[in-house]
Design a protein around this nucleic acid. Structure first.
Lengths: 155, 155
DNA sequence: ATCACTTTGACTAATCCTGACTTTATTATC
DNA sequence: GATAATAAAGTCAGGATTAGTCAAAGTGAT
């Protein structure tokens, strides 16, 4: 078995609940108290173990009646295409290369023509409007990878 | 759903009525009394939950016979509403407000759930990953307005 | 000894709720 | 009509209640 540190235990606790419920809503302070850790450790557990790549969506609200909500989504079984594209993009991508990526997504029928248009609008040079080319390409890479990770979701 | 502060309840109450009526007219003091809160909390609820980003227009009158009128509108229905929305976004928009806009587009059936997800991925704070909030919000505004204009002309 | 991962807590940010004060519109009185 | 009284809604700042961020310290496996 694994060495059960507290983060692992909290992860297990939450994932057990998520096996029976589509989503859960917690109060950070409550869970922290339950496991006798500081509240910010809950953030750590969520950030390291409930990522989008693993199929979890997290939303939260602060203030009175605040909460953290974690939802489990179904992922496509075969996302090798997405993995390859993400690896190819890395941390920076030109508009030219990005268009090629969108094109290939379209050809693989991973996105509709309309979705392709929307994506192209977001990564367009005129939309980003960043003067420094390096910064622009880095931003474009992050956006495109965000989209690719989204495409892992089953609809 | 589970979270229930008074503001959420007031919001729900008003939105329920608005599902059956195009617009409603309330007396601030009456609603406040009904929910046992101070009258200014009604302003708070309206300011945070019935914005143009959420797809609502609000007008009011003070003095004797005063009222607050809330109307549900469709964002791309006429250019006036869209212009109001674009003006409200201006050159900077928080993630919170941007999500409200995407939610409204979805509710008006101008985008599919999948498209909503893709758009949300692009404007996500973790996707943009800009340390300076002002710069982040400015980038988000450009992306969102780019999408709005695209929807305006292509659909 | 190093390196990645975990744990902590001080500080920050968002949201809710309240109440004192302000502004605007209508109605009553002179 | 002009002015005063009344009847609304609006603004704003502060306290309370949550969650988020970040960097430093601790832990354990190699």
């Amino acid at each position: 078995m694994e060495t059960q540190n507290v983060s692992d235990m909290i992860e297990q606790y939450l994932k057990n609940i998520l096996q029976e419920h589509q989503h859960i809503e917690i109060r950070r302070a409550e869970i922290a108290q339950q496991f006798d850790v500081v509240p910010s450790q809950i953030n750590y557990v969520i950030k390291t173990r409930f990522t989008i790549q693993n199929g979890y969506l997290v939303e939260s609200k602060r203030g009175g009646g605040g909460y953290i909500r974690i939802a489990k989504v179904r992922l496509l079984e075969d996302n090798q295409v997405l993995d390859l594209l993400i690896a190819a993009i890395g941390t920076t991508v030109s508009q030219h290369d990005a268009i090629a990526v969108v094109q290939s997504l379209f050809e693989d029928k991973l996105i509709s023509p309309r979705e392709a248009g929307l994506i192209l609008a977001t990564i367009d040079k005129d939309t980003l409007r960043i003067h420094d080319t390096q910064t622009e390409n880095a931003m474009r890479a992050r956006i495109l990878i965000g989209i690719l990770n989204r495409l892992r979701f089953k609809s």
